[in-house]
């Protein structure tokens, strides 16, 4: 925890990294200054795009002592304002799951290649990024903690499957390779409380380590201070839970 006598500094910049299939993509990277060692965090942006909230969130993780990287999952879809690029991806039905998993894995490998990483890397995402965080924690080895904030479409009906999203993430639950934190809102429609309960049953069935918190009077995206969905009390508590969870599983002395 920060105390007022402490030195604090951070480096934050755009970098390039290798993503899915070795493609070069860009990413936003922030880390505390100093020799470390620091745990790593991959920060997966939400469906609306690789936007300012996500660059801020990346710096927030650095402020809390993490070397954090947020890969631009929409890099291949061209450049423009985050909204314009996000709208283009929305029209295309999102990015393919395989590609997102490959990009997030690339970001994890980028962190692990750095000399000041403590050997632990986590993954965080909201909205579609929460879904991707869970998906990648199931499909890729190398993560030590995963945070899924209101990831919709983890449980999917057969009718919802598409060539880009051919398998419901919930069907990979047996392969989950690290502890999972889930934060959800009771008033959310995607994921609905019923879908969250379904996911929880699956996690229990396979004996996975997880912590789910369902917030009353909150819907989808209650961390976003720039949207009407913002819920101050729930967001403050949610961030507290995120950092407590990461401290438990990503500190050098952690489990």
């Amino acid at each position: 925890m920060y105390h007022t006598h402490m030195y604090e500094g951070m480096l934050a910049e755009t970098v390039t990294m290798r993503g899915d299939k070795g493609d070069v993509i860009n990413a936003y990277y922030a880390r505390p200054l100093g020799a470390g060692p620091f745990p790593g965090m991959v920060v997966i942006h939400h469906a609306p795009g690789w936007d300012e909230w996500y660059r801020e969130a990346t710096r927030k993780f650095a402020h809390h002592g993490y070397a954090a990287i947020s890969p631009n999952l929409y890099f291949r879809d061209g450049h423009g304002t985050p909204e314009d690029v996000g709208a283009k991806v929305r029209a295309a039905g999102g990015v393919p799951d395989d590609q997102a998993v490959g990009d997030v894995e690339g970001a994890m490998r980028y962190l692990r290649s750095l000399p000041y990483i403590n050997g632990k890397v986590g993954v965080f995402g909201t909205c579609s990024g929460g879904r991707h965080a869970f998906l990648v924690a199931c499909r890729v080895r190398g993560f030590d903690a995963a945070v899924d904030c209101w990831g919709g479409r983890v449980a999917m009906s057969k009718e919802e499957l598409t060539p880009k999203q051919p398998v419901a993430p919930i069907d990979y639950t047996k392969d989950l390779s690290c502890p999972l934190l889930g934060l959800f809102g009771e008033e959310d429609k995607s994921p609905s409380p019923e879908q969250v309960a379904q996911h929880e049953r699956e996690l229990k069935k396979h004996g996975k380590t997880y912590e789910f918190h369902m917030y009353p009077q909150a819907g989808h995206g209650f961390f976003y201070y720039d949207r009407p969905a913002y819920r101050q009390e729930q967001a403050v508590d949610g961030w507290k839970k995120v950092f407590a969870f990461l401290e438990k599983y990503l500190s050098a002395k952690g489990a």
């Binding site: 709208a87 029209a91 969905a229």
Partner: peptide
């Protein structure tokens, strides 16, 4: 709103900003 009916009039050949 959490969800809305979004209409984007675009020209894909002119890039993401042609919207």
């Amino acid at each position: 709103l959490e969800h809305a009916l979004n209409i984007d009039f675009v020209n894909e050949a002119e890039g993401a900003g042609a919207r």
